[in-house]
Amino acid sequence: MPEAADPHAPISSDEAGERDTVDAAPGQGANWPIGEHAQLGLETVPGWTPPAAYARESTRDTGPRGVDSLLPNWAATHPGAGHSGYRPESTIGGDERVRIYETNKYPWRPICQLTIHSRLGDEFIGTGWLIGPRTIVTAGHCVYLPAMGGWAKRVVVSAARNGQDRPFSSVVATKFHSVRGWTVDGKREHDYAVISLAEDAALPEVGQFGYAVYDTPTLLGSYVNLAGYPADKDGGTTLWWSARRSAQVDAHVLRYDADTAAGQSGAPVWRLDPSTGRRVVVGIHTNGALTGNSATRINACVFANLAKWTA
């Protein structure tokens, strides 16, 4: 019997066993103030306090320009692929998202608004985050769009965008990397990718997130922060944050009740360590589900590919 293809095998746009812990990649921000809610592992955001109990009614808002809205359409014509498990991102109970106005400060600064141009001429909104001056992590479906001709034609990256204000200008990227599990097999658990910037488009002044592999007991039930550019808010030009405890953790996926909408795919899902003030990304937000919203978990295989693509 032939050996099964490795779903984590890297595939680039210019080409046709989890461990318990892994040290985080170098990040920034350990010395930045962490605020009054840090003891919970939460960022302190003006105008927000940790909620008490909440209703589990769900309202779904995909937004007209979020790249995520393509996934249900793709699944309808490819019933054998993993996309059939996708559902629109959602707010759960009341919408608790809070707008971030000081996007030029850490930890918001490395989060990027993505304007994605498909090969068929359509334009969509997504989110990414820097792990190096030339490397932006995002969801696989933000750069490889099965329903729109495959690899994106180009992606315009705007770090720390705040409406019409782009404090680090915008750069255009045309080189992308993902894995066989997404580009060939279409599996939700392998929905992750990076955008590689040209040398003359590097963003060393922006800073970056660290990322790591945590064991399941550490992740389960801990607070996670999430921030991205939802298409239902200001046309996807403003940054919005929310946070909840993780509700379910498996080998490839994190699930949580943090409020999101289409356009936030690719957003960082991070833990804040109150003892050190260090922010560490543990997942890449991708989509909604019947039980909440979810991210591709950074496990050992994902970590290894991110490190390889950064190098």
Rank of each mutant, 00 (worst) to 15 (best):
G66I: 10
G126C: 05
H177Q: 13
A75C: 11
T138A: 10
R161M: 05
E89P: 01
S196R: 14
G163P: 11
I92Q: 10
W182I: 03
E123S: 14
A202Q: 13
R161I: 01
K105R: 15
A139W: 07
H117C: 05
P110K: 11
P72D: 01
I131L: 06
L114D: 01
R180Y: 13
Y86L: 10
G132A: 13
S170T: 08
A147P: 00
W108P: 07
R99A: 08
C142V: 09
I136Q: 01
S118Q: 06
I131V: 15
G63D: 08
I92L: 14
H190R: 12
H83D: 05
R166W: 04
T103Y: 09
D95A: 05
L70N: 10
S158A: 15
R180C: 02
A173R: 08
P146S: 13
G80L: 10
L70E: 14
F176V: 02
R65S: 05
G93F: 03
T138I: 10
P204E: 11
A202R: 15
D185V: 02
A152E: 06
V171H: 05
P204I: 00
S84T: 15
R161T: 01
A198K: 14
P204K: 02
S158K: 09
A201I: 05
G163R: 02
T138D: 03
I111L: 11
V179I: 12
I100C: 09
E89S: 15
R87K: 15
K175Q: 13
C112L: 05
P133L: 07
R154Q: 14
W151P: 12
D200P: 10
T127I: 07
W129I: 03
V179C: 12
A76E: 15
S178G: 11
A193N: 06
G85N: 15
A193T: 01
A139N: 04
T183I: 13
S90Y: 03
F176G: 07
V143I: 15
S170H: 05
P88E: 07
A173L: 08
H78Q: 14
Y192G: 08
I92S: 04
P64H: 00
G66Y: 10
I195A: 10
V98W: 11
G63E: 06
L71K: 07
G126F: 00
Q208F: 04
D122C: 00
W151K: 11
S90L: 10
V172S: 07
H141W: 09
G149N: 09
Q164E: 14
K187T: 07
H190Q: 12
S170I: 03
T115F: 00
A160R: 06
S170V: 02
R161Y: 00
V194Y: 04
K187Y: 09
G186C: 11
A75Q: 07
E102R: 14
T103V: 09
R188A: 12
P72R: 02
V179Q: 15
P133Q: 10
S84Y: 04
F168I: 08
H190I: 02
W74T: 07
E199N: 15
D95R: 07
T183R: 10
T77F: 02
G132N: 14
I195L: 06
I111R: 05
A160G: 01
K105I: 04
I116F: 02
R188S: 14
V137Q: 09
I92N: 09
V184T: 14
L114G: 03
S90F: 02
G85V: 08
P88W: 08
A159P: 12
K175L: 09
G163A: 12
I100H: 04
P79V: 06
P64W: 00
R119A: 03
H141D: 13
G63K: 08
